[in-house]
Amino acid sequence: MAKLPGLIKGLGVTFGTMVRTITKGANTVQYPHEKETPPIRARGVIALHQDNCTSCMLCSRSCPDWCIYIEAHKDLAPPRREGGKVRQVNKLDRFDIDYSLCMYCGICVEVCPFDALFWSPEYEYSEPNISDLLHDKTKLSEWMETVPEAPALEVGADKKKK
């Protein structure tokens, strides 16, 4: 058979795609009714583990958009063992992340020396009012429940993990 002109072969591609969509289903998901799960490392929202945070301000300083607002005061805590010195600890007053400014770069999570910030793949937190996008520390602590376990690494990776 002589070579089919490209025009006809092109028609075949679209027809084949149509048949494939009708028989095997489309490549799209009907969003509100079905949802795709994002991968584990997906950067959805930042969660705060309040007990670990010492308000060292490293995250606030390293944010490119300056969207983390931290206020803390010093408090006295009982000594670690009997007869020891009274310790000074930082108590968090305010830890807000403004998600209308956040560019989801992850520098704050990476830079935190005390493992107080974690990524969570939750993404459905849009609000009708832009000021509701400022998540305070209670809301950020609630996100902790959605933080997944870190995924296993590929073969050949170094066993030492953060």
């Binding site: 490392r41 690494l153 590929e154 073969v155």
Partner: peptide, 21 residues
């Protein structure tokens, strides 16, 4: 990397994380 469009994965000296399984 955690981001579809903006990976932000390269660091001076290497990469941020290893590949997932």
């Amino acid at each position: 990397t955690g981001g579809r469009f903006h990976p932000n994965f390269d660091r001076i000296g290497g990469l941020k994380d290893d590949l997932p399984a």
